[in-house]
Design a protein around this nucleic acid. Sequence first.
DNA 1: GAGCCTAACTGAAGCGCTTCAGTGATCGCC
DNA 2: GGCGATCACTGAAGCGCTTCAGTTAGGCTC
Lengths: 358, 358
Amino acid sequence: MSPDRVRRPTLDTIAREVGVSRATVSNAYNRPDQLSAGLRERIIKTAKELGYAGPDPVARSLATKRAGSVAIMLCDGLSSAFSDPALCIMLDSLASTVDSPDRALLLLPGVGDAGPRAENVMRAQTDVVVSYSLPDDAPALAAVGERNLPLVVVDQPVLAGSARVQVDDFGGALLAARHVASLGHRRVAMLGFSLSADGHRGPAGPSRISAGHFRVSLDRISGYLKGLAEQGIVTDEVPLWEAPGSVRELGREGARWLFGLRPRPTAVLCMSDELALGALRAAEELGLAVPGEVSIVGFDDTPAASWANLTTVRQDLVEKGRQAGELALRMLEGARPVRPVTIGVDLQVRGSTGPARR
Amino acid sequence: MSPDRVRRPTLDTIAREVGVSRATVSNAYNRPDQLSAGLRERIIKTAKELGYAGPDPVARSLATKRAGSVAIMLCDGLSSAFSDPALCIMLDSLASTVDSPDRALLLLPGVGDAGPRAENVMRAQTDVVVSYSLPDDAPALAAVGERNLPLVVVDQPVLAGSARVQVDDFGGALLAARHVASLGHRRVAMLGFSLSADGHRGPAGPSRISAGHFRVSLDRISGYLKGLAEQGIVTDEVPLWEAPGSVRELGREGARWLFGLRPRPTAVLCMSDELALGALRAAEELGLAVPGEVSIVGFDDTPAASWANLTTVRQDLVEKGRQAGELALRMLEGARPVRPVTIGVDLQVRGSTGPARR
DNA sequence: GAGCCTAACTGAAGCGCTTCAGTGATCGCC
DNA sequence: GGCGATCACTGAAGCGCTTCAGTTAGGCTC
């Protein structure tokens, strides 16, 4: 029934065969300078012959007390995570920063909108975890705390005892808002993603905003409103559509609603490029000229944004990933969390924004 | 200097504190039916008080001889991997298939175009590995073999002793080619991705094709040519541009070259939707009407394809991931590799193809 | 109340490796 | 030629957990 997997050779097998101690075989693999080249060669050769593939990673981990992986906790499932280009770029950069022969990336995808299950976190073989944009009250975060694992938080939330990398969301949104306001727009709308992890989709008023759990959303909204208020725009009347995810299709839906308002907004501030791309499509479908009749601003500056000639707020995603990776490595070495690292932003003005019509 | 991390409690600590044996504490966590509810409760409570977060995952793995993770080997780095929507969808489906409280996903991204380093594979704590679209001669595959780990191959390559999931690439390409041929196109071009892992970019002739290492590319080319040949098109004269990756920008570049040929092709068969999207853009930039002057066909049917109204070959990516996941689970239980699972394809005719001009 | 069962718990043997304090032997040096 | 240093290697103590063959006590049956 059960597969008769041949009992694999262990360190011991090799040691006995060559006639040396286990310590020596171990050294052959991990500290070549601890034995003579000749012996080492003999050991490796015997190992090959016996089909020994080197020290067992798990046993090694137990003995060294290093799991040899950095875990990444994501908010949603993989498919929505990976359809977020901003995340992908940042993740790639993070991965290559922490890359090393004995370190792997452990992926802990979220279930629904609430992050990974606590159970998975409790059982994860990892030394340090990086959380990306989780809601403040995610059970996974509590689990990390319970296990006493070092934690690096990206974007969200603010948590005592953890290192943090964040983007100047407020500042970026401010830039975007000032930009459209200075172009003369007075009727401005906002198109954003989740405020809380409840899958809400639709217009969101002040009460919903103030009850929000996602710092990124909240900061961007504050930035937008601040920038508009500076130019004397009455911020109570700035409509916001909350999409349950940062996906084109959802952006398009929200934009359709915004464009249906009377008086129609002449500018839409979008919290991500993906949402903005959806808004662009909605405008096209409704026959609204961009930027003639409506201006659209994104956030992130992903490759798709420049592809679509979208004005957007640029954040240095590669730098963000690198910083997160370095923090993770430093915490691995036992460093105390340092002060949060903030990644700067700037505005990329392209063809999707223009002066408001008189 | 070093952080005085308090020595964490172990199973033993709890056992001593409660006054029971280690076995019993272990059972409290893993086999609740092996002890009385009262005692179990007392144990858990004491554990909480002492800050014990449950059995150490690594030690547990050593004792049970299960690493508790499935590893995924990718061809390239994360950012190019994740910008491939087809991969993301399939990966998400795979992840949710194998998901369980004590199983995580170990990511082994490739370095360059050649897959993960063998070293990383040798040290990965995993029970089973899934490889996605690696070149036949990737060192990572040899490493998996050396470690004697069960392997599930997706799309590529054909390897003895491994389970396999593949798409009917040949059949899909055949459908695409027949479609354009039946619309009357005679001058047809192909826009594909890598034939070998050498980063080549540019036109590729028969000799390069026959020296290719990526089965997916080769099968699709065969399918295209077969479909065209059926309609009497001279396949020696069908131009192929090889892009070093499945990315829009590269597709655009290739399409520009193809559109510059004289006589100009009236249809382009693209090996992925991303490449096709690039071709669409190239056509737009050159003022070529789609499908009036040129027809374009993609492959995969990602969300972006329907978004762009692209005619394309649909493969069931969710099913593909699910099958790969199930194979992985089955091999985990010691099953012998079964015959390869083939995922079917069909043609999604949309607005990017039309009759050839007379 | 003897005999048998079951539930509840224990002891000890691993799992496969790393590491550190030694132990001899060899070497260089004056 | 004697002495300390260096080199090459070993023994044994863990790392923290699971598991399996017992053991014990209590309950049930006739």
